[in-house]
């Protein structure tokens, strides 16, 4: 039982990070109607940034986090200005192609700057281990849980209570209406890309602490994609729930199923199997936006 709870708790932390990355997906999907293939590469950059600030620079974790977020903001603004703005009003496919290009460029940049080597900052984080009865929560999980919960809460508040949040939700519904009342679409896009970059980079820092950073970390984007599909492509709440489900499933599968099969690896595919089963019964995902039909 303790083993199970232990797996659930660390899975919860992992799942929150997945959810965080998935929110980046959902935001771009909502404002531009395009899948952002480069979301996983934001994560990759985040991991390397985390390594750079924590290890060679030797900064404390909070300072590294703030610096990484600052870099992410600049990255988001640059991406919007240089790559996305010229494509506003073009077919969605053009936008998706552009995100593929972005993914390639970011991967190239990462190789160029960090050499594409395996970097780790596993031991750098403070080694507090929280004990809850028999369960111990490792520091990476604890930090991941706190940071991602706070970030998600801040984002939810942004959408719900601020003017720019309202503008973003309105843009997701009808771009022309939004332009006709004088909201600048470019501002909304810029904010969306900044948020996508920031959540990606934060997620990358947190995941990098657990598993180390290498180019394949970008594949986390695929997992976030699964989270988004499971949760319903345009629901932020759905992304959070689905992220947690997948994180916990992955961890529990790793704990119980991997020892059964020689070579392991079942944990990696188990969440996807669950996703496929759910999608067969609920093609819009768990919390897909209800299509409003008046009777």
């Amino acid at each position: 039982m303790n083993f199970f709870l232990q797996l659930v708790v660390t899975g919860l932390a992992l799942g929150m990070v997945y959810a965080l990355v998935a929110i980046g997906f959902v935001i771009i999907l909502k404002c531009s109607n395009a899948f952002n293939i480069a979301q996983g590469h934001f994560v990759l950059i985040g991991g390397y940034l985390g390594y750079t600030f924590l290890v060679p620079f030797g900064l404390p974790i909070w300072a590294s986090l703030i610096l990484a977020i600052a870099v992410a903001v600049v990255m988001g603004l640059l991406i919007e200005r240089l790559a996305i703005r010229p494509l506003v009003g073009q077919p969605e496919l053009a936008m998706i192609m552009m995100t593929i290009a972005l993914a390639t460029v970011l991967e190239g940049l990462a190789t160029l700057i960090w050499g594409g080597e395996y970097k780790t900052y596993h031991g750098v984080l403070p080694t507090v281990t929280l004990k809850l009865g028999q369960i111990s929560i490792p520091p990476e999980s604890l930090i991941g849980l706190i940071v991602s919960v706070v970030t998600v809460a801040l984002l939810m508040a942004l959408f719900r209570y601020t003017k720019i949040g309202l503008a973003m939700r309105a843009t997701a519904e009808d771009l022309q209406v939004v332009q006709s009342v004088g909201i600048k679409a470019t501002t909304v896009y810029a904010v969306s890309w900044v948020i996508a970059c920031v959540v990606g980079v934060i997620g990358g820092m947190l995941l990098g602490g657990v598993s180390g950073v290498m180019i394949p970390l970008a594949e986390i984007g695929l997992k976030a994609f699964a989270v988004v599909l499971l949760g319903g492509v345009n629901s932020i709440g759905g992304a959070i729930v689905a992220g947690i489900i997948l994180g916990v499933l992955e961890n529990v599968a790793a704990g119980y199923l991997d020892p059964l099969l020689p070579g392991g690896g079942l944990a990696q595919i188990f969440p996807f199997i669950v996703m496929i089963i759910v999608l067969i019964f609920r093609p819009y995902g768990l919390f897909g936006l209800v299509r409003i039909e008046r009777i």
Partner: peptide
């Protein structure tokens, strides 16, 4: 704006 409330529509 279908998924927004009436008041939010007006505020937009």
């Amino acid at each position: 704006l279908e998924h927004l409330t009436v008041e939010e529509n007006l505020l937009v």
